[in-house]
Every structure is written in structure tokens, then in C-alpha cells.
């Protein structure tokens, strides 16, 4: 039962709970009209203390498509925060108005702190460089829908593996599934951190690290691309040196299996050439839509509406 629970990190839910959530997302995709009034009378507080148009739109449209309403902000300078209100007090106050809260904040741990003071469920919509669990759910739904399973897959993860929080969450979550194998493709400076590799080692999940995207293409079932994020670098020089390291092109796609899917949490900069968009294996825009459906399922589950 997920009713009344919070989602702060992907590991908050068991794989069984995640599969049940994805089942509901599948049901919504198959028959969205049946859920168009499921959350009627319910209010989502969508609190974005830092800009993220994509995630905010995804949460807001998820609630609207369930027949619910949305309050919130995407600019904290227009709220009581600007007057010095603590996030703890904001959580207590806003949860008197809303039935569920989605919060994004630049400080790590904010969603957990808010969940301790809120009288309604809190969803972490991203807390700094720490966690972004609804992106993980999005990725899981996308993989399960496109591959038909969440087990026995070889997943290549490419780009900024050091700072990519969505990648850390996805890999540690998939480590709980059977028969998974990972290929970590990155420059030396942006390799997967030890804590993620420790999780894999403990779970007995095989993986290897490489900087050769082309050589690893033929063995992949999924290629998860990521953006090298400017804000994670101390110096502009370092960012400029690494940002163009891996670019997926139509030529490289020719090396991949006909069934290999390309995922990306978006937004992209230039790591996937636009020419790849027309390839039927480019699944990143479908992934965006699945993100909305999985958030619809999550809202219903946490509100206890099925």
C-alpha cells in the first residue's frame, strides 16, 4: 500500500510496489478517459524553488489529466520564503491547503525535511544533485513498456556518470532486478562514483567501464544518454573540454541492435544529434510522455485512489 506514503528516494518503494505503480501507469495509458476524474476535488501543491519547466509541467498536467487542481509556484521570490519562512513551516502550512505536494529545491534533503512536517504525502521532484525519483520511475516505465520487461537487459549509460543523479538512481534501482548488466561509458573524469559501483558489487551485478561508445553499441539493449551539466563544474574550462566528449550520431546508431532503444532524461544540448530523432529507436520524447503517465499513477497511489 502506497497510500499516505512519501516518495523521497527510489529505494523508498520495493520492486513489487514499483511494478504495481507501473501496472497502474499502463492502465492509464491504455484508457486515459477512465481516469479523467479520478482525482476530482484533490489539490496538488507544485512547489518549485528552482526552475524546471519540464518537471513542473509534467506534474501539473498529470494532476489536471486526473481531474484534480494545481496550486504552486516556480519562482520562490514571490512566496513567503522571500520573507524568511523555513521550508519546514512552508510544508506544514501548504499541507493544510493541498492533498499532495511535489517539491523541487536546490538544497539536498529538502523533500525529506518537508515530509517530516507535512500533513500530506510529499513527492521529491528533485533536491539539488541528490535524488530525482520520479525521473527514475519514468525511466523504468519507459524501459518496461518498450522492452516488455525489467530484467535480463544490458544497459549502456553514457555521458556524465559522475554528477548525473538520474543515472545513479536508475542504476541502483535496476540493481534490484534479475539478470541486469551495465556498461558505463564516460571520459575518465566523469566516471561512475564508487558508491554506485559498491551497490552493484554487493548485489553481484556485472558491469564494466569504457570510453569507447562505438565498441559497446552492438551489445546494448538500452542506451541511456545524459547531458554534461554546466552547473556541476567548478571551472568553465573543464566543462567546455568535456561537454562534447560523446555525441550520438546516426552513424553510431548503425552499429546498434535493431531493437536497441535510446533514452535521455532531457533536456539535451548536443549529445544526441538531431538526425537521430527520426530513428524509430529514439525513445526520449516518448519517455517524456511516459513521465506524465507515471506521475499520474504515483499521485493516485499516494492519494489511495485506484
Amino acid at each position: 500500500m502506497l497510500k499516505g506514503r512519501n516518495l523521497i528516494a527510489p529505494v523508498d518503494f520495493t520492486m513489487e510496489e514499483i511494478h504495481s505503480l507501473l501496472d497502474l501507469a499502463d492502465a492509464i495509458i491504455d484508457n486515459p478517459a477512465a481516469y479523467a476524474e479520478s482525482a476530482k476535488g484533490k489539490v496538488l501543491a507544485s512547489l518549485f524553488y528552482e526552475p524546471s519547466t519540464r518537471t513542473k509541467f509534467s506534474f501539473d498536467t498529470a494532476m489536471l489529466r486526473l481531474g484534480g487542481s494545481v496550486i504552486g509556484f516556480s519562482d520562490p521570490t514571490t512566496t513567503s520564503t522571500a520573507k524568511g519562512e523555513t521550508v519546514a513551516d512552508s510544508a506544514k502550512t501548504i499541507s493544510q491547503y493541498a492533498d499532495i505536494i511535489a517539491v523541487r529545491h536546490p538544497k539536498e534533503g529538502t523533500a525529506l525535511l518537508m515530509s517530516r512536517y507535512s500533513d500530506c504525502p510529499v513527492i521529491n521532484a528533485g533536491d539539488g544533485g541528490h535524488m530525482h525519483p520520479t525521473q527514475t520511475l519514468t525511466d523504468l516505465l519507459t524501459i518496461r513498456r518498450l522492452e516488455g520487461r525489467l530484467d535480463h537487459l544490458t544497459i549502456g549509460v553514457c555521458g556524465d556518470l559522475k554528477f548525473g543523479r538520474t543515472i545513479h538512481s536508475l542504476v541502483t534501482c535496476l540493481a534490484r532486478c534479475e539478470g541486469m548488466r551495465f556498461v558505463f561509458i564516460s571520459p575518465q573524469e566523469l566516471r561512475m562514483p564508487d558508491y554506485v559501483k559498491t551497490v552493484l558489487d554487493r548485489a553481484g551485478v556485472p558491469y564494466y567501464e569504457t570510453h569507447d561508445l562505438e565498441a559497446s553499441m552492438p551489445e546494448l539493449d538500452i542506451l541511456y544518454m545524459s547531458r554534461v551539466q554546466r552547473e556541476r563544474f567548478v571551472s568553465e574550462e573543464e566543462y567546455l573540454r568535456l561537454k562534447d566528449y560523446f555525441i550520438l550520431t546516426a552513424d553510431k546508431m548503425q552499429l546498434a541492435k535493431p531493437s536497441m532503444m535510446v533514452l535521455h532524461p532531457l533536456p539535451r544540448v548536443n549529445e544526441i544529434a538531431v538526425e537521430v530523432d527520426s530513428d524509430p529507436r529514439a525513445a526520449y520524447f516518448k519517455q517524456v510522455k511516459f513521465g506524465m503517465f507515471v506521475r499520474m499513477a504515483l499521485i493516485l497511489k499516494l492519494l489511495g485512489i485506484e
Binding site: 523555513t86 521550508v87 519546514a88 529545491h105 536546490p106 538544497k107 539536498e108 534533503g109 529538502t110 525535511l113 533536491d127 539539488g128 544533485g129
Partner: peptide
């Protein structure tokens, strides 16, 4: 320094 506990008293 990026932890919320260093922004407000917890």
C-alpha cells in the same frame, strides 16, 4: 554546504 540542514535549523 548543499545540504538543507546548513540552510535552516534542523
Amino acid at each position: 554546504p548543499r545540504c538543507i540542514t546548513n540552510q535552516e535549523h534542523v
